[in-house]
Amino acid sequence: MKRIVAVVGGLLLGAGAVMADQKIAVEQDNLMRGQAKSMYDVIGKMVKGDIPYDQAAVDAAIADLEASVPKIPTVFATNPKEDVKNATYGSSPKIWKNKADFDSKVPPVSKAIADVKGKIKDLDGLKVAFKSINDRCTDCHEVYRVKLK
């Protein structure tokens, strides 16, 4: 009887750990997806001409990025050891092997956002801002993001 209780307890602990890992992975994925929505679904589509320039949408996207980017080191503090199911991209284990370098990639993104905030007044300004911010995002993505599919 003690063995059965121990086995069931072990299985429940293991299941709890897997669910916790998935919760952390989803939180990380949601943060990045939110930033991608602002960066690519709003700003990027305007830059490409897929949607018309909209100052209010630009300001909201920049404000969202400004608020969410500094959260990256905290949200990525724990290695979930698994990826979000059916995700296209995931986090490289390199993040937790070199956390200081990973964290050092965030301030340049925040600075790029701060440098353009309030200065974007038209499509040409948006194009410059997009490149500036995107280049800093790419500095991290090249090393710490992996394509899963």
Rank of each mutant, 00 (worst) to 15 (best):
K131P: 00
A100R: 02
P93G: 11
G118M: 11
K45G: 11
A36Q: 07
K111N: 09
I51C: 13
P107T: 06
A63N: 09
G49R: 00
K71F: 01
S104D: 05
P93D: 07
S91V: 07
Q35A: 08
G44P: 15
A67D: 03
S104C: 11
D135I: 15
R33H: 08
D122F: 11
F76S: 02
A114F: 07
P93L: 07
I72M: 10
V116T: 07
P108V: 13
I72A: 05
L31Y: 05
K81S: 13
A56N: 08
A63W: 03
V58A: 07
A100Q: 04
K117H: 14
G34M: 03
N86D: 15
D124V: 11
D135G: 14
K85Q: 10
V128E: 13
T78F: 02
K37M: 15
I51G: 13
N30M: 13
G49T: 02
K99E: 00
R33D: 02
S104G: 12
F76H: 08
Q55D: 05
S132L: 14
F102W: 13
L65R: 00
K48H: 12
K99W: 12
S104L: 13
T78D: 04
N98H: 12
T78Y: 09
F76V: 02
K37H: 12
A63Y: 01
A77Q: 06
M39V: 03
S104M: 09
V75F: 10
S91E: 02
G118C: 09
L65V: 05
Y40Q: 08
D124N: 15
V58H: 06
K94S: 14
K121D: 10
D101R: 12
P108S: 12
A60N: 00
A56F: 01
N98S: 15
P73A: 07
A100Y: 03
G90E: 00
D103E: 10
N79C: 07
K81H: 15
I133N: 09
P70M: 11
A63E: 04
V69I: 11
V47D: 02
G118Y: 10
S110Y: 05
S38Y: 01
A57H: 03
G49E: 01
